[in-house]
């Protein structure tokens, strides 16, 4: 019988309750725990959804996520998670994740899989063309502005802090001023 940890506890609890024995569940839980995450490697993460900052333990075995659960050590969530936080297992174990760069040509009707190298080169060429065509050294008043007016960016609160810093650095080096993200909406 394939019983999940939670299912096992439920069954055990029901048996104990029915038998009327005043036995603590603790040894049962100590026995049950290794079943799913035995020999698994644990790392901690912070939930990517709302801004509470709940801590989550991710258990992996042979490079695959086998379990995610609330981190009881966190003083913020003390092991609790909501429906979204409880589902982050499915963000990693999900056949619908994009695994390859996709390209849609002008007036094209479908996606084509492309290599990173090809995509990076083509994007860089586009950036340079747009930048060179729209770069303004001075404004109408003759004041120094050094900005690229033909490219805009939105994003992203979904990135890590370090990436946010690096991304603004990248954009401002290109001369962008149309820089926005989720904080404005």
């Amino acid at each position: 019988m394939d019983v999940s940890r939670r299912g096992f506890l439920k069954i055990s609890g029901a048996v104990l309750a029915a038998s009327g024995l005043g036995v603590s569940l603790k040894p049962v839980s100590a026995y049950a725990q290794p079943l799913k995450i035995k020999y698994a490697k644990e790392t901690t993460t912070i939930c990517p959804y709302c801004s509470v900052g709940c801590s989550i333990i991710v258990s992996t075995r042979q490079g695959k996520v086998v379990n995610t659960e609330g981190d009881p050590d966190s003083p913020i969530n003390k092991g609790s998670l909501c429906s979204k936080g409880g589902s982050i297992y499915q963000m990693a174990v999900n056949e619908n994740r994009l695994g390859k760069p996709l390209y849609r040509e002008p007036y094209g009707t479908e996606w084509k899989e492309v290599d990173w190298e090809w995509a990076f080169e083509k994007i860089a060429e586009n950036i340079k063309n747009s930048r060179d065509a729209s770069f303004k050294v001075t404004n109408e008043k003759g004041e120094l502005v050094n900005r690229t007016e033909g490219i805009a960016s939105v994003g992203s609160a979904a990135m890590d802090l370090e990436e946010c810093f690096t991304y603004q650095k990248f954009l401002r080096s290109l001369g962008l001023v149309y820089i926005e993200h989720q904080a404005r909406i």
Binding site: S153, A158, M159
Partner: peptide
């Protein structure tokens, strides 16, 4: 002419 919708 160009636009990034990064993580959005």
């Amino acid at each position: 002419t160009g636009f990034f919708a990064w993580g959005m």
